Simulated assay, not measured.
Amino acid sequence: MNWFTFLPLIIMLALSVALARIPSRLHPSWSARLLATTGAMTAVAALGTGVFVAINYAATLVPSAAAHVPEWALFGDDRPVPDAVGVPAAALAAAGLVTACRAAARWGAELRAARADVREPLDTDVPIAVAVPGRNGGVIVSRGLLHELTPEELQVVFEHEASHLRHRHHRYLAGGALAAAVLPPLRSLDGRLRLAVERWADEDAAEATGDRAFVARTLARVALAQPRAAGPVSAFAESGVVERVEALLATPPAKNAVTGPLLFMGNGVFTGSLTAATLQLDHVIASSLLALLATG
């Protein structure tokens, strides 16, 4: 084992932190894609690195068991994994896997409970609108929302929620929430992702209604709704209301028809390669060095 084992995770963490802190000038749809992809890949890289090191540490403790482990799961050298590295890696990998499983179970329970409420308006005076994905999903609204808003304002809300359902935003949110659960330093990335997803739906609603200022006023009016816990469903006035209103009152963002797809594809190839390398980097580095020596 050498420090190259942790290089993909270090690079992924650095990229995730950078994306969370640097304001993006892309359209919210492309910002959301970049953040979700990077966050999810970083979480997978963290879990993969931890499991990889833990397997090799177990092989160090019980060398006879290494014969039953696939070759791709072992380091490219026979050096033992020290206790100072193996024990924390095994503990963190186990904790990460448990956290991910608990988060998935919690999201599933939340979705099932939300789908049960889709059939009729929520009996509350608080104006609430929530997009619930899935075959039996739809849009949950409260009686307070139906009573307080005009038909035109309700159209804004439903256009916003329809955008969440049409683009399957719950998958983006699940990726960000997974990253934040497994790696707490990525909570800022999760927050920026949630804002980007809401901004994406705001822009779709503004485009559908043709009145950005009216969408901004409707959003501000519904902002008194109680925020929901972070999960795979989105409420209309869930987060970043002030920033969203300011964005709607400003010039519409560019569509990024060329730069958006190119950046997204490049980011996907880069992060995907790094994530795959969490199990094979030792072998790749060794092979590359041998090839360079042979050609030199």
Rank of each mutant, 00 (worst) to 15 (best):
245 V>S: 00
156 V>M: 02
275 T>F: 04
219 L>C: 05
278 T>N: 06
229 A>T: 12
112 R>S: 05
270 F>V: 10
62 V>N: 07
255 K>L: 08
196 A>N: 12
159 E>S: 14
176 G>E: 12
29 S>R: 14
215 V>D: 10
205 A>I: 11
187 R>Y: 08
185 P>R: 03
263 L>R: 08
128 I>K: 11
286 A>D: 14
33 R>T: 13
184 P>F: 07
65 A>L: 11
215 V>M: 06
155 Q>T: 14
134 G>H: 14
7 L>G: 09
142 S>Q: 12
255 K>W: 05
96 G>F: 05
84 A>D: 02
29 S>K: 14
38 T>R: 01
276 A>Q: 03
77 D>L: 10
248 L>P: 02
219 L>S: 02
63 P>V: 02
123 D>H: 13
53 V>F: 07
10 I>K: 03
124 T>G: 05
167 H>D: 09
191 G>E: 06
124 T>W: 08
279 L>S: 14
191 G>K: 04
18 A>Y: 14
12 M>A: 11
230 A>F: 08
243 E>R: 13
66 A>M: 10
203 E>L: 01
183 L>I: 15
255 K>D: 07
244 R>G: 12
217 R>A: 15
184 P>H: 11
259 T>P: 00
51 V>K: 05
46 A>H: 06
291 A>C: 04
204 D>G: 03
246 E>D: 13
134 G>E: 11
276 A>D: 04
261 P>H: 09
1 M>L: 05
101 C>W: 01
283 H>F: 09
104 A>S: 02
61 L>M: 09
114 A>Y: 04
92 L>H: 00
192 R>C: 04
119 R>P: 00
53 V>D: 13
175 G>E: 03
76 G>V: 05
133 P>E: 13
173 L>Y: 09
199 R>A: 15
106 R>V: 00
131 A>I: 13
190 D>V: 02
80 P>C: 07
285 I>W: 13
7 L>K: 06
282 D>E: 14
207 E>K: 13
33 R>E: 12
132 V>I: 15
221 R>H: 12
27 H>L: 10
43 A>V: 05
219 L>A: 00
240 G>R: 01
195 L>M: 05
126 V>R: 12
111 L>V: 13
231 G>W: 00
199 R>H: 14
1 M>T: 03
128 I>C: 00
65 A>Q: 01
57 Y>H: 12
217 R>H: 01
112 R>I: 07
289 L>S: 03
60 T>V: 00
20 A>C: 11
157 V>K: 05
25 R>T: 12
259 T>L: 15
179 A>E: 10
188 S>F: 04
170 H>E: 06
64 S>I: 06
150 T>I: 09
8 P>S: 09
32 A>P: 07
162 A>H: 15
151 P>R: 05
117 D>I: 03
56 N>L: 04
285 I>A: 15
206 A>R: 10
252 P>E: 01
58 A>P: 03
100 A>P: 11
164 H>T: 12
56 N>P: 04
8 P>D: 02
147 H>N: 15
62 V>Y: 13
232 P>H: 15
3 W>E: 09
261 P>D: 13
9 L>V: 14
49 T>Y: 05
36 A>R: 12
23 P>S: 08
234 S>G: 01
173 L>F: 02
198 E>H: 15
226 Q>M: 03
3 W>A: 13
256 N>Q: 13
39 G>H: 03
75 F>S: 10
135 R>Q: 12
